[in-house]
């Protein structure tokens, strides 16, 4: 099986600071790591490879300082990591990001299955999986909570549609966006830290860095980055704390206060 994993290097959102003036992340505030949902995509890729054999390629579009995150991906079992990095990719919205990723996938050749995370912890749109699938003309399922079965030409998954979980069969090639926790066949998947020997091996591995020019034969370069993006963030600010005036109470008084809140809100009479 030829398996592709989309990995977004993202900042630790508990550390990252946001430049509200410019509407962008303050790059110095946090290093980049693998988007937590994408860790599940790597784990699923490894299990599919275990069953069928094959090769796992990861694809990321990110600034150059994302490289350590890609080494982490290699340590975790990715065979080849590709980083699309160029100033001309910068400022891409989800449309331009997906267009660029899909172009690179076309350039790489054909894949049986593409795995990604359901959403990122920063942009948080959950658009990229479905948009990449659309650009490639393949089916996809988002919010996948279980891989029920994989065979050479199809995959059966369970997905959260909102009202209920549905069992869906997809013809391969297809794209699957993974939620968490996720079950592979009957195994509950939890990403674990890579072994030290794998970390050392990954340190020496080669990361392929591609520029915009390298995609010129498969894509329209004017559609990359901010230039190609149909949306614009025009203003950004920290979410307000709703201006709650917190009343702090202790012990017995706390119990009485809770009871009066229950009464005031009509929860008890």
């Amino acid at each position: 099986m030829n398996i592709l994993v989309l990995i977004k290097p993202t900042p630790d959102i508990t550390k990252v600071r946001f430049d509200v003036e410019k509407g962008v992340v303050d790059r110095g505030s946090a290093s980049l790591e693998i988007n937590p949902f994408d860790l599940y995509a790597i784990e699923v890729a490894k299990r599919i490879k275990r069953v069928f054999g094959g090769f796992i390629t990861s694809l990321s579009m990110a600034p150059p300082h994302a490289e350590p995150a890609l080494r982490d991906a290699i340590a975790r079992g990715v065979d080849r990591a590709i980083l699309l990095s160029d100033r001309r990719f910068a400022g891409a919205d989800t449309w331009a990001t997906s267009y660029t990723l899909a172009s690179a996938i076309r350039k790489l050749g054909s894949f049986n299955i593409i795995l990604c995370g359901e959403k990122s912890v920063d942009g948080d749109t959950a658009h990229v999986g479905p948009e990449v699938a659309e650009f490639l003309g393949i089916p996809h399922v988002s919010f996948v909570t279980r891989i029920i079965d994989v065979s050479v030409d199809k995959v059966i998954v369970e997905s959260d549609f909102g009202e209920a979980y549905y069992e869906v069969e997809l013809k391969l090639p297809a794209l699957i966006a993974l939620s968490r926790p996720v079950i592979f066949r009957d195994e509950f998947i939890e990403p674990s830290m890579p072994k030290v020997s794998d970390v050392l091996r990954a340190k020496k591995a080669k990361i392929d860095v591609w520029s915009a020019d390298q995609l010129a034969d498969v894509a329209d370069v004017s559609k990359f980055g901010l230039n190609g993006s149909p949306t614009r963030v025009v203003r950004a600010y920290y979410a307000l704390e709703k201006g709650r005036e917190t009343r702090v109470v202790k012990g017995e008084e706390g119990v009485n206060m809770i009871l009066s809140v229950l009464r005031e809100t009509g929860v008890i009479s």
Partner: peptide, 16 residues
């Protein structure tokens, strides 16, 4: 819309 796990609120325009 909220982004950054709910920490940021962004105002977005669409050009198309």
């Amino acid at each position: 819309r909220p982004a950054f796990t709910g920490n940021i609120i962004a105002h977005i325009k669409t050009l198309t």
